[in-house]
Computed example of a mutant assay.
Amino acid sequence: MTERSEFMSDSDRYYTPQNSKDAMRQIELLFNKYKDAPLTQELVDYHQNLVNRLKTDIMAAAQKEGVAARVDSINSMINVMQRWLQIRLQGQPFNGKMAHFKYEQNGTTAKFKRRVHKIKGAGSHRASRH
């Protein structure tokens, strides 16, 4: 073990966002990681903690920054996360994810085909035929 890892401060250990949008991105990323996990009391507590962070700390930071659209995005995130908990407590699957701080249903994003075909010539000259 190195000496640095033995004496790590809390500031090295925890993620500290630069602004409210950075914090919102981090919560969105965390939410999308656990949204399909089996529901346990620990997960519910963790989820409630994130929602409370959005309602208090991050909302206050967004209002202080003076970005009205960001406050609306936080309210949208809170609604999605509360709806997720209600759906999961009823035993139903949550068919979607959070993208750009809003609910996005599975299968609604456009998928693009990308198949590379070599057409006469060197390998660096490629065309895609769709």
Rank of each mutant, 00 (worst) to 15 (best):
R25P: 01
N19Y: 11
V51Q: 09
T56R: 02
Q41P: 00
D10N: 11
Q48P: 08
D45L: 11
A37C: 02
Y14S: 08
E42G: 13
Q26I: 12
L29S: 10
S11G: 14
S20Y: 09
Q18H: 03
E28K: 01
D36M: 10
D57L: 06
S11V: 10
E28W: 00
K21L: 15
D57F: 15
M8K: 13
N52S: 13
I58D: 08
I27Y: 00
M24H: 09
D10G: 04
E42P: 01
L54P: 01
Q26E: 09
Y14F: 11
E3N: 15
V44K: 05
I27A: 00
R25W: 07
T2L: 02
T16H: 12
S9V: 03
Y46N: 07
E6C: 03
Q41V: 05
K35D: 02
D36N: 05
T40G: 03
R13T: 07
H47R: 11
N32R: 11
Y15A: 14
T40Y: 03
L54Y: 01
N19M: 15
Q41M: 04
K21C: 11
R4W: 10
N52G: 14
E42L: 04
L54H: 04
D12Q: 14
S20L: 10
L43G: 06
Q26R: 05
K21Q: 15
Q41A: 06
D45I: 07
Y46K: 04
F31H: 07
Y34E: 10
I27S: 00
K33V: 04
S5A: 05
D45N: 08
D57T: 04
R13L: 14
V44E: 02
P38G: 03
V44Q: 01
D36H: 05
L43I: 09
S11C: 07
Y14V: 13
T2W: 00
F31N: 06
Y46D: 03
R25G: 15
P17W: 13
P17D: 14
E6S: 13
R25I: 14
T2R: 01
E6R: 15
T16V: 15
K35H: 07
R53F: 05
K55D: 08
T56Y: 01
A23C: 15
I58N: 13
H47E: 04
I27E: 00
R25S: 15
N32Q: 10
K55G: 06
R53V: 05
P38L: 10
L39T: 15
D45Y: 02
F7P: 00
D36Q: 05
S9C: 00
D22C: 08
T56F: 07
A37V: 08
Q48V: 04
I27W: 00
L39Q: 13
H47D: 05
M8E: 11
T2M: 01
N19I: 05
L43A: 07
P38S: 10
D57V: 11
L29D: 10
L54M: 14
E3M: 10
M24D: 00
V44T: 09
S9A: 01
